[in-house]
Design a protein around this nucleic acid. Structure first.
Lengths: 162, 162
DNA sequence: CTCCAGTTTAGATGAAATCCGATCTAGGAG
DNA sequence: CTCCTAGATCGGATTTCATCTAAACTGGAG
């Protein structure tokens, strides 16, 4: 059976479309301040995870983050990665990108752009946000489907003050 | 630890916003023709699965489809549900809606609208497609994030003729 | 320095999805 | 109608992603 999208973490290359990534400023030391700014306790694990994002990585799965952060903090547990990512999410440091397969994370500073997923190989590319009409996709990319996902609080939850 | 979104299949209510669902026309007998139109072999399992969508269900998880279709075809295997949904996807009968938790499926005829996910309870609602600017969301819904996902073939895959 | 709320850990647990070989069957050919 | 085979299904194991739990640890306020 043919895979519509594979489950393996798979390398997630980025398409270089004009806007070079504002190279992450988070050094090991800078990460501490960044954490404190967001009211988060500073721990070696959190710094290591935050620093992983400062590379030119783009979107990362929890597993990729775990693998890379383990280089800094060998005893790191997977649960800690998930806990930390949830904290970062709450603090607005990262945002989630859901698709098929594993959930991906990227710096919230990188937000504003949209995503293109290849229906054949499953890879995820960034798309220039300059208006949904002018997709600014490199030639050769063929859009088959477009889906807009809004996220926030529904009527019931917002009235319950969640 | 608080759940950002639960994993349970969860009831997926639909927001009634003006456009009443074009009630599915697939009866058990009509389903056969619909399958043939798409070049798919007609089997009891496929008919049962297709009929599940003709209810007023909206988005359904593979598990919900399995549960409901089992009423018609008790020996139905989960793998068959996944295989069939993949075939339906390829044939353009259904489309996928990815979010957190299980992947959901809906009739492709219902396509064109977008989705709103509640970040507190995880429920998924339909959003009127009349322009992304005029969301046509019922009062009380608070949009925190917007993400547009394009899907299709990337440069490499489209040149390889996938 | 001391203390404790908040963090982290290892391993168990759970859910979604897929794989695989054996078996069955829809529907075209004869 | 019957036969035949490509394609569909079965069922149960497996894989992957994510979360939970309880015990141990620690950042940083005081």
């Amino acid at each position: 059976m043919e895979h519509i999208a594979s489950w393996e973490p798979s390398r997630i290359p980025r398409v270089s479309n004009g806007s070079p990534r504002a190279t992450g400023t988070a050094t090991i030391s800078g990460a501490a301040g960044q954490l404190r700014e967001h009211g988060l306790r500073v721990t070696p694990q959190r710094r290591a995870i935050l620093v992983v994002f400062s590379g030119d990585a783009g979107h990362l799965s929890a597993d990729q983050i775990f693998e890379q952060a383990t280089g800094e903090v060998p005893e790191l547990a997977r649960a800690t990665v998930y806990n930390t990512l949830t904290e970062f999410l709450r603090a607005g440091i990262v945002r989630r990108v859901v698709g098929l397969g594993a959930v991906l994370y990227e710096l919230d500073a990188d937000a504003g752009h949209h995503h293109f997923r290849c229906s054949a190989c499953g890879e995820l590319f960034d798309v220039n946000p300059e208006g949904a009409a002018a997709l600014d996709l490199p030639g050769g990319f063929e859009v088959e489907r477009t889906q807009i996902m809004f996220e926030g609080l529904c009527e019931r939850c917002s009235s319950e003050g969640n």
